[in-house]
């Protein structure tokens, strides 16, 4: 099956960085990957949506996903566009402080995580997205945690190298903060199947 994911939040929260790290990690794990962003809303404070699809075989997914089976919610703002496209039973990994503001969660598997608080504990409030990345990887088995760390480091520009350590701690803390049993992806299955 193909794992499809929306990452939704506000420009400046590192949404695109999370998506890119996940995609690069999947490449490291030998997967086929697609990464699409929403353009035009890139400035800080606007809507930011990333789309990631991961599969074991060449992908069939469209660059604009009509539907997805999982989401990371960093903000409840601009959620409508993403929420309306989630298949029933989707995994929604949400920042704990905004989770209550997400509508229509009764059909989905909601996992909340105080990502910003965990990131702050790990030394960087800005690394909340990295906490989510670690948590998502651990929850779904989409990518190896070490791959996620390496992928994050791979794309950090030279002038931001000082953030790598805090980001790595955030990824690992995120992974440790969830129980990896609710939503496992079977990449080898021909059709979508959630354990």
């Amino acid at each position: 099956m193909e794992l499809d994911l929306f990452i939704s939040g506000i420009g400046g929260q590192g949404i695109q960085l999370v998506g890119k790290s996940l995609a690069l990690a999947a490449i490291r794990d030998g997967r086929h990957v697609m990464l699409a962003g929403e353009y035009g809303g890139h400035m800080r404070g606007g809507s930011s949506v990333g789309t990631v699809v991961i599969g074991a075989r060449p992908l069939k997914a469209l660059p604009i996903l009509p539907h997805a089976g999982s989401a990371i919610a960093m903000s409840h703002l601009f959620w409508a566009r993403v929420g309306s496209r989630l298949r029933p039973g989707s995994l929604v990994l949400a920042e704990a402080t905004i989770a209550a503001d997400l509508p229509c969660m009764d059909k989905h598997i909601l996992v909340t995580l105080p990502a910003t608080a965990i990131a702050t504990e790990q030394g960087s409030r800005m690394a909340a997205g990295m906490v989510m990345l670690g948590a998502y990887a651990a929850l779904t088995g989409a990518v190896k945690i070490d791959s996620a760390v390496a992928a994050m480091a791979e794309q950090i520009p030279a002038y931001r190298r000082q953030h790598i350590d805090a980001n790595e701690r955030a990824i690992r803390a995120g992974a440790a903060a969830v129980t990896p049993l609710t939503y496992k992806v079977d990449f080898d299955a021909q059709e979508a199947r959630v354990a």
Partner: peptide, 9 residues
């Protein structure tokens, strides 16, 4: 633009 900007492996 979809072709130009969508990233794939």
């Amino acid at each position: 633009n979809l072709l130009a900007r969508t990233q794939m492996g």
